[in-house]
């Protein structure tokens, strides 16, 4: 267990005023003009036969991935930045279709609350339904419900083989034809597929759809990352790459996400208000937007 006393003291109690947090600053960095803290870093333990790892939220994702690779395992977090940043932003990379969303990775969190207390959510085992699922609320909350200090994550085994392929076949044909692809990307013309598993199975799957091996995914446009129902994502126009089946669109153009349903937005605000009554954790960041 990582000692979070110093981190909690830095965050301070309910009277300590606004406070923000940063890791490596790769996902937007801290709120400007607000007192800033950082979470502890380092791997506390790694248990390959449990498929779990415990680390400080300030641990770089790449460092964690490298440590897990020594045991032929990895973690379903997007590369770069810190573990805490990846969890707090909650956006998966293009392997989400096969590896699952970021929210399914966090098993237990010890975070510092708005009151400055160290609070535990979830549990250390791969399966757990003890109490309400505060962990899933923390993922994607951008620090507004609490600052992650120490996390226990589910790991996953590295596949025997992994290969990107490309084809001009129709997206739906590829979606129906492949068994559990890890990623399917479509730019309006071509489909890219990432397959994992036994090399012979990969080759047979690719051959059945006439897919050619390629070096990697296409370059993703960076104007906006849109989250849409998968069927709506298919109606994208302009310069884009759609993550098929998931509903994430990487688009060259800027975009403002549509306003949420008012009742859902009010509920999100109510959760935030209950967890941080004065709104001092990462202030001005919207809970939704």
């Amino acid at each position: 267990m990582i000692d979070l006393a110093e981190f909690a003291a830095a965050v301070g109690d309910a009277d300590a005023g606004p406070v923000t947090i940063t890791g490596l600053g790769t996902r937007g960095g801290p709120v400007p003009g607000v007192r800033c803290v950082g979470a502890p870093a380092g791997i506390a333990w790694l248990q390959p036969d449990e498929m779990t790892v415990c680390c400080g939220a300030g641990t770089p994702v790449d460092e964690l991935v490298a440590a897990l690779a020594e045991h032929r395992q990895t973690v379903a977090l997007p590369a770069g930045g810190t573990v805490g940043g990846a969890l707090s932003v909650g956006r998966a990379d293009v392997r989400q279709l096969g590896w699952g969303p970021v929210r399914d990775t966090l098993l237990q969190a010890r975070y510092v609350s708005a009151a400055g207390e160290v609070v535990k959510a979830g549990g250390p085992t791969v399966k757990n339904v003890s109490g309400f699922d505060v962990c899933r609320l923390l993922v994607g909350s951008r620090g507004t419900l609490g600052f992650l200090g120490e996390v226990i994550l589910r790991t996953r085994p590295l596949a025997r083989a992994s290969q990107w392929y490309r084809t001009s076949a129709e997206p739906a044909v590829v979606q129906r034809g492949l068994y559990r692809p890890v990623s399917l990307l479509w730019d309006g013309t071509m489909v890219w597929a990432l397959l994992e598993g036994h090399p012979e199975d990969l080759a047979a799957q690719a051959a059945s759809l006439g897919m050619e091996p390629c070096d990697g995914p296409p370059t993703l446009p960076t104007g906006s990352r849109r989250v849409l129902p998968p069927a709506e994502a298919m109606a994208s126009t302009g310069t884009f790459v759609v993550e098929l089946g998931v509903g994430v669109v990487h688009h060259a153009d800027q975009w403002t996400s549509p306003t949420r349903d008012a009742r859902e937005a009010a509920l999100a605000e109510a959760v935030r208000r209950e967890m941080d009554p004065t709104g001092r954790l990462n202030p001005v960041l919207p809970v939704h937007g």
Binding site: G90, P101, R136, L137, L228, A231, S257, P258, L285
Partner: peptide, 22 residues
């Protein structure tokens, strides 16, 4: 009545809380 989450895998919009998960 409120719909939590959507057919999209991630909560829509930047920093959306996963109320579905809650």
């Amino acid at each position: 009545v409120v719909v939590l989450g959507s057919e999209a895998w991630e909560p829509a919009g930047a920093g959306g809380l996963d109320l579905r998960g809650g």
